[in-house]
Amino acid sequence: MKKTSLFIILLSTFLGSCQDTDTQKTISGLERKNFQQQVKGKQTDLYALKNASGAEVCITNYGGRIVSLSVPDRENQLQDVVLGFDNIDEYLAKPSSFGATVGRVANRIANGKFVLDGDTITLDRNNGEHTIHGGTEGWQNQVFDAEQPSDSVLVLRYVSKDGEAGFPGQVQVKVTFSLSEENALKIDYFAETDKKTVINMTNHSFFNLSGNPEKNILDHTLLVHADAYTPLNEQLITTGKLEPLVGTPFDFTRPISIKEALMKDSSHAQVQLAQGFDHNYVLRTDGNLSHVAAEVYAPTTGISLYVYTTEPGLQVYTGNMLDGSRIGKKGVAYNKQTGLCLEPQHYPDTPNKPEWPTTILDPGEQYTSTTIYQFGIQN
């Protein structure tokens, strides 16, 4: 009887601890159970990365999405600095790229077509006549296999089948998220293919360093280490030109608030087209991770963000299409310009621009890319 009673007590304790793991809230207020669901025959979940400094990054394997990212402000209070949702249902309800791992090819491909070795590849068109972020079956809408080898590391894997969204080749994908003790989130991308294809991955987090998405990001100061950007045509497709930043609202070669930049010339044709900023910057960092690609600072919290990347370009998007229709974490409506995206990547529509750095991946080769989001404090 004593052995049986002891077994029951231990079993109850074990089951209780399992329930606690599922129901316990993260630092940012998320509940793991709200992210556990069968999607496309696979299990979704929520994973929390933590460090000794108290920072936390919560990621779901649905789309490899960063759901929350909590870092200290100047008062040593943790602030959640990314937009996202409280449960998996909100991510499934309406296609979006909030916090997502984007692939096969980030950004737009004109007319959903490109030529590869003389063959015209026709893709799924999900942006009018064009393809954006890999089409309807882009990786932001797929369930990754997840492994968490430590409290600060998460590894996601996905197999993209030959012909998925029209792209050739079966691609093996691995994305590794690592949170350092210095509050740096490192994202390492890896891919291999069995057939010639194109790859251009990124992360599509919306940052709001105020920690309060009821406020917009217009007071954030931005510095981008670039001398040129890629202008758009009327359908938001890159024209193929590289335009200098000097004398334009796009000139962030010195720290300037987003509001001040927009006020330079709000009638600028490119600003009008995108209803703000939604443009790729041609970085001058040469893919060197020791060189800062971009810097952001929020005066209300003192939180700063430094972006490092091996990529040649950086898409800067000021959340112009957010319209309050999406209700995010803690019931906050995401209105226009309440999030800032900084997406390291190859230039948009590169498969149709052979003069630009290539996105082609051949069998036997490895696609690798690294982005680091380093958080700090300025007083």
Rank of each mutant, 00 (worst) to 15 (best):
P255M: 14
N320G: 12
D278L: 04
V316E: 02
L322C: 04
P344T: 14
Y317P: 04
D286I: 02
V246G: 10
A293K: 03
G276I: 00
S266M: 13
A261K: 05
G276S: 05
T310S: 14
A274T: 08
T310G: 04
F252M: 14
P344Q: 06
T253V: 09
E311Q: 14
G302D: 02
T285D: 10
K264S: 06
L273P: 00
K241F: 11
I303R: 04
E311D: 14
L342E: 03
A333Y: 00
I258A: 09
C341K: 00
Q275G: 02
G276Q: 05
L314I: 05
L289S: 06
Q275V: 00
G324V: 01
S290Y: 05
N320S: 13
P344K: 08
E243C: 11
I237N: 06
L342V: 08
E311V: 02
L314H: 07
V292S: 09
F277M: 04
K329V: 09
A294N: 07
F252H: 12
A269W: 02
A269G: 00
E295W: 11
P255H: 12
E260D: 15
Q270L: 08
L283F: 08
E343W: 02
P244R: 08
A269F: 07
V292C: 12
L342Q: 08
K336I: 00
K241R: 13
F277A: 02
Q270Y: 04
L245H: 12
A269V: 13
Y297T: 13
T301P: 06
D323T: 05
T318S: 13
D251K: 10
S266W: 12
D265G: 11
G331K: 05
P244Y: 12
L305Y: 05
A294R: 01
F277E: 03
K329R: 15
D278R: 01
R326A: 15
K241Q: 15
P255Y: 13
E295S: 13
C341Y: 07
D265A: 08
I237F: 08
Y297D: 06
E260G: 12
T238E: 09
F250R: 08
R326S: 11
G247L: 07
K241Y: 11
P244Q: 07
A269H: 11
K329G: 03
L322E: 03
E243T: 15
H268K: 03
A333D: 00
D251W: 10
P249N: 09
G276K: 00
G287D: 07
G331D: 08
V282F: 02
T239C: 09
A269L: 08
V296T: 07
T318N: 11
L342K: 10
E343N: 05
S325G: 09
G324Q: 07
A261G: 14
A293C: 10
V271N: 01
V271R: 03
F277G: 02
G319V: 01
T248N: 05
Y281T: 04
S325Y: 03
Y308W: 01
G313A: 12
P299I: 06
Y334I: 02
L283Y: 08
V271H: 01
A294S: 13
R254L: 14
L340Y: 06
E243Y: 13
L289P: 06
Q235F: 13
L283W: 06
G247N: 10
E343Y: 06
G247S: 09
D251E: 11
H279L: 07
M263K: 14
Q337S: 14
K264H: 12
Y317Q: 01
D323G: 03
A333N: 10
C341F: 06
